[in-house]
Nucleic acid binder design. Structure first.
Lengths: 185, 185, 185, 185
DNA sequence: AATGAATGAGCTTTCATTCAT
DNA sequence: AATGAATGAAAGCTCATTCAT
């Protein structure tokens, strides 16, 4: 495995910081400092500057979560089981040692008024997640896969906000529990 | 009805701008310019500066939405009916002529890393909404009012994010429809 | 006489620096440092930033030179005498202790590709100078005042460039001498 | 005729850009981009960096104009005729399709405070032009060739500035006309 | 209570240059 | 000879806040 490139290093560092503080709340100086890179090294890899970096970071997290959803649904025997596992995975990925990271989509949506292109990235990531979920719903025999996908997406996003406010994974656990009751019923 | 005070004018202007652009995305100069107030006039009404203004603005929108929820549940004969009406009201309040405003709680949560006190306001508003919903759920005979309240809150918040990404009220309408089906079932 | 305002102080400092180093060759930090003003104090007086400051500085020097031309022509009995005195005045004003300052119009013209509005200021100043000279030419009985004005303007500008290259007022003195011979002829 | 070398290509591209935007107004990145050359390829041809490139570009334009002057005087029967033709040639060379290029000497003079060596190039080019003009003046029987040369140089430089401000070749045409009247008189 | 000026830290971005390959 | 990456200083500008009046 090759050592991660400067570009990837920047993307990962930025991704976390944007989720912690929002797009406008993070300065490039901070990103570079956390990444341990010198000030001038950003515009070689991201000529579009902060916006291009944010786009790359958001897409990167988006793909990461999408893979995680695929893994959660891998061995599921029905959609509800996959939904519960997804919920648990999102919690695991989101609740870090001492803080809860926001959904990257949410962070970008707040910055749209300053960088209109960021809305497209947010939309792309949401659409990818939805079609990923819809695929699993279809495969597992749900009547209306798109409806199921959107419903789960909404639940996860809403729960994410509660988790952010409470600074705890508990809302995700409560959602998982509600989904379990639903399944048994 | 007396003309609204300078203080209230500031609060309302700031509330909309923070929901449009996020806490870090709006400068005090912009708020004062939009409000048509002179540069130095903020710190008389809000000695705590930007943070205190944001707190007041968030609480003000929080209360406004809470009253709106009460009105939505006023004549409801069951919780689902109130939920559907709430959903429609949030859509009406959020989808402006040419844009969709974010939930004020979401805007504040993104700024917490810079202004830790803002998390308390976000938590307060969420708690108020939840207990308001739980009150209606209890009054309308639901088994577990708190669970119903959290569930609806999660659905609304998640839908809000989809509406923000799509820049349309359609997600709220789809949620209302899903809630209707649920009710009939 | 009141002490010069911060705004005027900035204008005078900037005017000299722009003539020394050109528009792109001077930084705002340098202007403020030379003026002894703190970094943030510029945008109150010049919300348009560097460009607005350059415009004000250019117009200020333009007016100063125009007054000087009027003084040079005040007691002149014919146009050639006024022209010679103007030439001497421009030299006196341009050749400082240890350097020759450029014509402010020339400094702005080089920056037009970056700040297109600066061309208008340059044109305005040139037009003012020309009509000022034409007025004196008409008053002193020249046949074609506009032609005389443009001819003198061209001679002064061209001489200015030679003086700049030589770092000396000698080209102005040679021009004055040529104008004298012309007069006697 | 061999294809122009990379070095010459750089010189020509830089010459035009410096005349358009001034020395400080052009970045090396822009020069290389316009020339279609890779980022690192400049310091092989010009170890002295931007300054050395500017020197070469200025000298190159200087020589080009000098040859043009020689051509203008080639078949002239008196100095005034050559002067008029020179004036027309400078106009043709300076007024491009959609813009007027500055005299390279003027562009360099504005950068002297940052790169003192550039004054020498400006002086060299001016001296070459002057002795070129003086040679023709002597050959064509003028009494004081140096005086005639400087006078014409001054007129051309001054006219150049007016043309730059007006963004038109008209000042050159008016100069040519004035020179014609002079000749007939 | 009200206000225009002032303030310096911070912002994103561009700069000319150097270096390893 | 050639080149993409790296580099940190400096660019113009905005920031939330303080102050004198």
């Amino acid at each position: 495995m090759p050592p991660i490139s400067t570009r990837d290093h920047l993307i990962r560092t930025a991704a976390t910081l944007f989720r912690q503080k929002g797009y406008s709340g993070v300065g490039l100086a901070e990103i570079l400092a956390v990444a341990g890179l010198p000030k001038g090294s950003l515009y070689h890899h991201f000529p579009g500057g902060k916006r291009e970096l944010a786009e790359a970071a958001t897409l990167w997290v988006g793909k990461m979560i999408e893979k995680m959803v695929d893994r959660a649904f891998e061995d599921a025997t029905d959609f509800q089981e996959g939904a519960i596992r997804t919920c648990q995975s999102v919690e695991r990925l989101t609740v870090q040692e001492d803080q809860v990271l926001a959904c990257p989509v949410m962070s970008m949506l707040q910055a749209v008024s300053q960088e209109p292109e960021l809305r497209d990235v947010a939309r792309t990531v949401l659409a990818d997640w939805k079609s990923c979920l819809a695929g699993h719903a279809a495969r597992l025999g749900m009547d209306d896969p798109d409806l199921e996908a959107e419903q789960l997406l909404v639940l996860l996003q809403g729960t994410w906000i509660l988790a952010l406010a409470e600074q705890s994974g508990a809302p995700f656990e409560r959602l998982a529990e509600r989904l379990s009751h639903h399944r048994q019923a």
